[in-house]
């Protein structure tokens, strides 16, 4: 299914994400890596010192869609696959992979690249590559 090319909204949205990461580093000295923030408050080895701020950040994240609805009187546009099994597998891989690789699109892709971290640049190139291949296989080999 085609989606509209939205360079300006995407650039502005990206800038908000960047601003959020700068606020978090300036205020708390933390990297805005979502997989890190979530996994630190999960068992085993819950980070008790960082628990309250982690939960507050996630509450802010969860409030964004309701706020969007209040301000624009429309739900954010999204199309999510209805294939439950596919999404369970995808979720397991994303959760497992982001914690094992110490980061996801935000921690490695945005924050890590900005800090010039060689690990993050390598990780971003690797997950981009496997994601491109996965979508190619999903859409052009398996499906159609």
């Amino acid at each position: 299914m085609e989606t509209e090319f939205t360079p300006f909204a995407s650039l502005l949205g990206g800038a908000l994400i960047g601003l959020s990461a700068v606020v978090l580093l300036a205020a708390h000295g933390r990297i805005a890596g979502i997989s890190g923030i979530v996994s630190r408050i999960l068992p085993p080895s819950v980070d008790k010192a960082g628990l309250p701020q982690g939960i507050i950040f996630l509450i802010g994240l969860l409030l964004a869609a309701p706020l969007w609805f209040l301000l624009t009187a429309a739900a954010p546009v999204q199309v999510v696959s209805r294939n439950g099994l596919l999404l369970v597998i995808a979720g397991l891989l994303v959760g497992f992979g982001s914690v094992m690789g110490n980061g996801c699109t935000s921690g490695h892709g945005v924050c890590g690249i900005s800090r010039g971290s060689a690990r993050s640049i390598a990780a971003t190139m690797i997950f981009m590559a496997t994601a491109f291949v996965t979508v190619f296989v999903l859409r052009h080999v398996v499906g159609g």
Binding site: F96, G97, S98, G101, I126, A129, T130
Partner: peptide, 8 residues
């Protein structure tokens, strides 16, 4: 980890 994450 990164490779697995990308597939998901």
């Amino acid at each position: 980890g990164a490779a697995t994450f990308g597939i998901g």
